[in-house]
Amino acid sequence: MTTSTLAHADARRTIPGTPIFDGPAAMQGYALNSMCFSFNDQANREAFIENEEAYFDRFNLSEAQRIAVRNRDVLGMIAAGGNIYYLAKLAGIFGLNVQDVGAAQTGVTVDEFKAGLLSHQVTISQQQECVA
């Protein structure tokens, strides 16, 4: 945690349960997000699967980032500066989709997470005759 982060902390708005990926987070998470960005390449995904620890070294991950990835701890990755758009590529390597990731962060089962989404189920459709 840098001084500048703390200096800004009071002034920064928080939204409960909602990470705001701002400058300090982007600086803190740069190594982890760089690693995830590298997974756009199939060969890099394979190298990660082959030896995670060596791959951490290649991107110079912080200790907190390594622990979070080892534990498959999504909230820990976010706390260590991970951004969900990049973490989604890592989740893909683990075979996890956004419902799996959502359940992991909210402390419910995947079925319960899906049920939560379905509790909002609604379909509203309307159209003018010219395109009907």
Binding site: I78, G116, H120
Partner: peptide, 17 residues
């Protein structure tokens, strides 16, 4: 929609409408 954080899964139909 929200993918990240403890509020993941958040939906707000009134705001969408």
């Amino acid at each position: 929609h929200q993918l990240d954080g403890e509020r993941a899964g958040f939906i707000n139909t009134p705001y969408d409408l």
